Amino acid sequence: MNADRATPQAIRQARTDNPTMRERDLAQQLGVSEAEFVAAYCGISSTRISARIEEFLMDLEGLGEVMALTRNESAVHEKIGVYDKPIAGKAAVLLLGEQIDLRIFHKQWVHGFAVEKTDGETIRRSLQFFDAAGEAVHKIHLRPASNLEAYEALVAKLRLADQSQEVELQALPKTEVKTREIAESDVENLRARWNQMKDVHEFVGILRALELTRHQAIQAIGEDYAWQLDTGSATTMLEQVAEAKVPIMCFIGNRGCIQIHGGPIENIKLMGPWANILDETFHMHLRTDHIAEVWAVRRPTKDGPLTSVEAYDADGEMIIQFFGKRVEGNAEREDWRNIAEQLPRLMRNAA
């Protein structure tokens, strides 16, 4: 461990001194990663486990009902359900359950812990996974209905010999935000490829081929395909789809996992900078003060155009993305498209 970083003992003392502070916030205050914070309790309330999801993918359904949590710096996605319908692939692992829907980029899963916290007479158990830099990529929280026996068997199966209270971290390169001016030929190439899309998943390949970021592409493509909205439009959209009972898809992700909700939303609560969805099996928390830009984006597909609403931070990184929920092979819902198209556009200052 770097001599300048807080020791496991110092981390535990800080927790004792700040019993009500969120661990993620306390870790940031101490200048350590969340993985280092959790590791400081190895042998006390946490256990090092393998983070290789291919080793335990087929065991997750046995846990029964749990809560899946994926977050980035600006948004949190919490979903209650069962880890069923897994599909293992070379680049990604998919969970395609009715409730828990994940895209897992397993090469980013480096550190794993089983964590048990005592809250009064209640023991809260979770499996927590982190990338090489110690940033959380995904967490699985047990619930009262979870299968405790299956959980204990899984922890025993995945337990590592190394149970030290320190972790070796590796700095990960920050996603490069390209600042070069896009040439007219680049825009023509982008529009030509965009016009030929048959599936929204082809978009990532287009960006890779043209060496563009997602943010660059939507800025350059033209207002027939992407138009900038007022920064409050994400909240406006949530309120409107809840009122109209329009089922949506909500994507929140990080470098190691994307978590998806598909269905209607009901209870929207605005609390300070946070916009929250507080439904029975789905909670979402969005820091609206982190939103620098909101865009409506239209992509061609074999089923007709699909419209998304996307929020970006000041670095051009996508925070959250929404689509109307639909079944593959069907056209986009008109009620969703109408809401997206009628959201207030950004009012630019007149020259």
Rank of each mutant, 00 (worst) to 15 (best):
H138D: 05
K139T: 04
K139G: 00
I140R: 00
H141K: 03
P144M: 07
N147G: 06
N147I: 01
N147A: 07
N147P: 03
E149N: 07
A150T: 06
A150S: 03
Y151N: 01
E152T: 00
E152M: 01
L154H: 00
K157Q: 01
K157I: 00
K157L: 00
R159E: 01
L160D: 00
A161V: 04
D162Y: 02
Q163A: 02
S164Q: 08
Q165H: 04
Q165Y: 02
Q165V: 01
E166A: 13
V167K: 05
E168K: 04
E168A: 13
L169I: 09
Q170H: 10
K174G: 13
T175M: 08
T175Q: 13
V177I: 15
K178H: 08
K178Y: 05
K178V: 13
T179C: 09
T179H: 13
R180L: 05
I182K: 14
I182W: 15
A183V: 12
S185P: 04
S185M: 07
V187F: 02
E188Q: 09
E188I: 07
E188H: 05
L190R: 06
L190D: 10
A192S: 11
A192R: 13
A192H: 07
W194M: 07
N195F: 06
N195R: 10
Q196M: 07
Q196I: 02
D199M: 01
D199I: 00
V200L: 09
V200C: 05
H201E: 08
E202P: 05
F203L: 11
V204R: 11
G205S: 06
A209H: 14
A209T: 14
A209Q: 14
A209R: 12
E211S: 14
L212G: 11
L212E: 10
T213H: 15
R214A: 12
Q216V: 14
Q216H: 14
A217G: 15
I218D: 14
A220G: 14
I221K: 14
G222Q: 15
E223M: 10
E223P: 15
D224N: 14
Y225D: 08
A226N: 02
A226E: 10
W227P: 08
D230W: 02
T231I: 15
T231M: 11
T231L: 08
A234S: 11
T235R: 05
T235Y: 10
T236S: 12
M237C: 10
M237Q: 02
E239T: 03
Q240I: 01
A244P: 02
I248T: 11
C250D: 04
I252G: 08
I252D: 07
G253F: 04
R255D: 10
C257F: 06
I258L: 07
I258P: 01
I258F: 07
Q259T: 03
Q259S: 10
I260D: 04
H261A: 03
G262V: 08
G263M: 06
G263T: 11
I265K: 11
N267G: 04
I268M: 10
I268H: 12
I268D: 05
L270R: 10
M271Y: 06
G272Q: 00
P273H: 02
P273I: 04
P273Q: 06
W274G: 03
N276H: 05
N276F: 03
L278E: 12
